[in-house]
């Protein structure tokens, strides 16, 4: 009896061993396929960037080879210089930076003041006003653009920096984002500051802005990226040589030109427009991803 029981126990243990071995094999395979899948996705995600860079460094004859090369035979840095002049990138960069920096600074000042009022100060109708502003976020931007196009024409703002900066200075969404952040700062701090006779603006500057800095940085980066990537509004209202912005200039430079497209030079221009964005991303990854995960909007 004792022997038989012992055998049963041993059999059972073997079973367990078998299943756990099977389990290990399953896990190893599962992990392998998961990594395989993820690496294929990473390859697909990265490929366009890779293709952009290597194409931008090829000579035109090499680009047109029947069998493509995956590394330039001769690295043509000259394509970048040619792209810079061909697409007039100097002026485009300058315009975009002016518009980006000025609109970001002004927009930050306004957003911070507005968010502060909605987070801290009390007045009649505050909540209704705030809800009304939030409601405008549902409306597609094209609806505003149609009338704004007429308004800025009547103002005589066509083809100026003003028209690129002023109309979209206030983003209700950024106000909302910052207000939420301000609300998390305990009210006691504000009341204590009031007792000490600290003015509102000083309190805002000394306490609230430092505490909400991550959100403010997120807003700054997203706003700058927005200026860099904006296409339609600048095209409508400021498409002259002197005020054209980067995205527009890029698209125009290679569609207006007649004759054969010099693809490597085109790719070099595209790379020049994309690289600043990557640099910003590398340095501010955390802020960008945080801002985006709460917004769901591009730029």
């Amino acid at each position: 009896m004792a022997v038989k029981k012992n055998r049963e126990v041993i059999m059972h243990e073997r079973d367990i061993e078998k299943t756990s071995q099977l389990q290990i094999v399953k896990t190893v395979f599962g992990t392998f396929f998961r990594y395989l899948f993820l690496l294929i996705v990473a390859f697909v995600v990265l490929f366009p960037f890779y293709w952009m860079i290597i194409s931008s460094l090829k000579s035109l004859p090499e680009y047109k080879l029947n069998v493509p090369t995956f590394w330039p035979q001769e690295v043509m840095w000259g394509n970048y210089a040619e792209a810079f002049t061909a697409a007039n990138l100097g002026t485009l960069f300058k315009n975009t930076i002016i518009v980006g920096v000025v609109s970001t600074i002004l927009s930050l000042v306004i957003t911070i003041l507005t968010a502060f009022v909605f987070a801290r100060l009390e007045f009649k109708g505050k909540n209704i006003l705030f809800a009304g502003l939030l409601a405008t976020m549902m409306i597609p931007g094209e609806l505003f653009t149609i009338t704004n196009y007429e308004v800025v024409t009547r103002f005589g703002w066509m083809n100026t920096y003003t028209v690129l900066i002023v109309p979209f200075l206030v983003s209700v969404f950024y106000v909302y984002l910052l207000r939420q952040n301000f609300m998390q700062i305990p009210n006691e701090l504000y009341l204590a500051a009031k007792v000490d006779g600290t003015s509102d603006l000083k309190y805002l500057w000394k306490v609230m802005i430092p505490l909400a800095l991550p959100t403010i940085i997120s807003i700054t980066i997203l706003k700058m990226m927005g200026a860099w990537n904006s296409y339609m509004w600048p095209r409508l209202v400021a498409n002259d040589e002197a005020h054209r912005l980067i995205t527009n200039g890029l698209r125009n430079a290679f569609t207006a030109a007649s004759g054969e497209t010099n693809f490597p030079v085109q790719m070099a221009a595209v790379a020049l427009v994309s690289i600043p964005l990557f640099l910003v991303f590398i340095f501010f990854r955390k802020y960008i991803m945080k801002g985006v995960s709460r917004s769901g909007i591009k730029g």
Partner: peptide
Amino acid sequence: TIYFLPYVTNSIAIGMVFAAM
């Protein structure tokens, strides 16, 4: 981080890369 890269691009610029491909 790699998967997030397409987000920080200019849709016109990368559209031109897809066109080239």
